[in-house]
């Protein structure tokens, strides 16, 4: 019998789930190797758990979701979180540094009906997680690699070094050194294949902090390249704002 897969959504934009649908030809290979038992974005057919593998997208932002993830964990042999929301809280973790009551009053006409937590937190803050796949969105080759490794029972090839390693392997010219473009690549985890530098853009950190991020050495460089303190704070206040090294670099304590 084929192993069963379920895909779950929490507070997120659905982009990581779409990456699964975007596998194109490999999607057939995936459905050949694994039985998709619950994946609302793709199919309305639902098979009861427990599941061999659950992929979880999104962060925990409501009391209801905090309950739901416990149920999913109980029903999953392996649980892998996918994307910046699920692994660090996502862009919505900016609420962690602000007053959520004030937000709800400003945004909603009837804030009394809104049930939300003061924070957006990664899944690993709530249940044990077998692997965290980074990215906003995740990289489809990395997803295939992770599922292939899971199926055969080997260690996945998911590097935790900087984006710079991928620039150099690809032969991409460094945008910081050769163009003076600020780049978060030295403190950001590899995985995208140096997507942004390959298009002459600085990395904006969507894969979150690398294994040993030295943000206190990178920040003076960003300042030398013309970024103000506010710019630096904003650079670190995006999809992975909730991760500790980026949170500290942004001055969110």
């Amino acid at each position: 019998m084929k192993p069963t897969l379920a895909v779950w959504k929490f507070a997120s934009c659905d982009g990581c789930q779409l990456t699964i649908l975007d596998l194109e030809d490999d999607l057939l290979a995936l459905t050949g190797a694994i039985e998709i038992s619950d994946f609302r974005e793709a199919t309305s057919a639902v098979v009861e758990g427990p599941y061999d593998l659950s992929l979880v997208e999104g962060s925990i932002t409501t009391p209801h979701d905090a309950e739901r993830i416990q149920e999913i964990r109980r029903n999953s042999k392996a649980l892998i979180t996918i994307g910046a929301c699920a692994t660090s809280g996502g862009i919505q973790a900016l609420r962690n540094f602000a007053d959520v009551d004030e937000f709800t009053r400003v945004v909603y006409a009837s804030p009394q009906y809104i049930s939300t937590l003061a924070t957006s937190t990664p899944i690993s803050d709530h249940v044990s997680v077998d692997f965290e796949l980074r990215g906003c969105p995740i990289d489809k080759r990395q997803l295939l690699e992770l599922v292939s490794a899971f199926l055969i029972g080997r260690k996945p090839r998911i590097p935790t070094t900087s984006v710079c390693t991928e620039c150099k392997r690809r032969g991409v010219v460094c945008v910081t050194v050769a163009h003076g473009t600020p780049c978060l690549g030295p403190v950001t985890q590899a995985g995208c294949g140096a997507l942004c530098p390959a298009y002459n853009r600085g990395c904006f950190g969507c894969f979150g902090p690398m294994e040993s991020p030295n943000t206190s050495s990178l920040i003076p460089l960003l300042r030398r390249l013309g970024r103000s303190d506010t710019d630096v704070e904003r650079l670190f206040s995006t999809f992975n704002a909730g991760s500790e090294p980026f949170r500290k670099a942004a001055g969110h304590g």
Binding site: I152, R154, T165, G185, N214
Partner: peptide, 27 residues
């Protein structure tokens, strides 16, 4: 130092590598 690896990868004499295994979905 950022531990970014750039110095070693641009160095024309540095020779370190690692060996990785791959497998497809069907195994």
């Amino acid at each position: 130092c950022l531990s970014c690896t750039n110095c070693t990868l641009v160095c024309p004499t540095c020779f370190c590598s690692s060996v990785e295994d791959t497998s497809d979905l069907a195994g």
